[in-house]
């Protein structure tokens, strides 16, 4: 006999796995668009440390001269990205799942402890429910970022009709750079997310597909069926 615990509701698994390819398409098509005016970089004291992006990077991903294609994909798949994100937020609100997700008073302090624990610089992880403090902070931040991408995107897509929004975000060119920075944020999130999934192991990954977590054997033993004498151990 095995004990399983319901972990991820079916709806959440759908939202998560639909978002994955759609966000990938949005980032890829965004890259096709960005290439046509690739002006961003990180400069310190006049020296360019990072250029977004080097020619070799574009070449490797076959990015150049595909602006029209990029815009077409971007402005079709944006609807799926938006609707899926909206449904996710509505679901978490209505189901009450948000209580497990949104950071609480201690989450910001504790998320550092989680990071230190995960880096093996601290022995104990802080107590948690479904998600640890770092997860609460990052999974909530990513939703805020998604909202930000929709708003900055809208203000550069229709900068006249949504001129008020563009002004609010610092103007057309500022909104474009914010849209870009958010995308870099997704990529960083993705890297950490993948590393954490690998670190957490198969059981954790499996639960994102099956929805349930299998309770390890040693915990099973503690609650052995009542008809077995447990005192003779």
């Amino acid at each position: 006999m095995k004990k399983i615990i319901k972990k991820h509701p079916l709806a959440l698994r759908w939202f998560h796995w639909i978002n994955f390819p759609i966000l990938a398409i949005m980032i890829w098509s965004g890259l096709l668009i960005y290439w046509a005016n690739d002006i961003y970089g990180v400069k310190i004291g006049g020296r360019e440390l990072i250029k977004f992006f080097p020619d070799s990077f574009y070449k490797a991903l076959n990015i150049p001269f595909r602006l029209a294609e990029g815009m077409a994909y971007h402005f079709v798949f944006m609807w799926l990205f938006f609707i899926n994100g909206l449904l996710y937020v509505l679901y978490t609100l209505i189901s009450g799942e948000w209580r497990l997700l949104v950071p609480n008073r201690n989450s910001f302090k504790e998320s550092w402890q989680v990071v230190l624990h995960d880096l093996h610089l601290r022995k104990e992880a802080p107590a948690q429910l479904k998600y640890n403090a770092a997860q609460r902070v990052s999974y909530s931040a990513i939703i805020v970022m998604g909202f930000g991408s929709v708003l900055t995107g809208l203000s550069i897509y229709k900068p006249v009709q949504f001129g008020w929004l563009a002004s609010l975000l610092g103007g057309y060119e500022m909104a474009r750079s914010e849209h870009f920075i958010l995308t870099i944020g997704y990529c960083l999130f993705f890297i950490v997310h993948i590393l954490q999934v690998i670190r957490a192991g198969w059981r954790n990954f499996s639960s994102m597909v099956t929805g349930f977590d299998v309770v390890p054997a040693e915990e099973n033993d503690v609650q052995a069926p009542a008809n077995l004498p447990s005192s003779n151990l």
């Binding site: 004990k3 615990i5 319901k6 349930f212």
Partner: peptide, 9 residues
Amino acid sequence: MKETIITER
């Protein structure tokens, strides 16, 4: 969270 006991199979 809801727990269930099921067979290995």
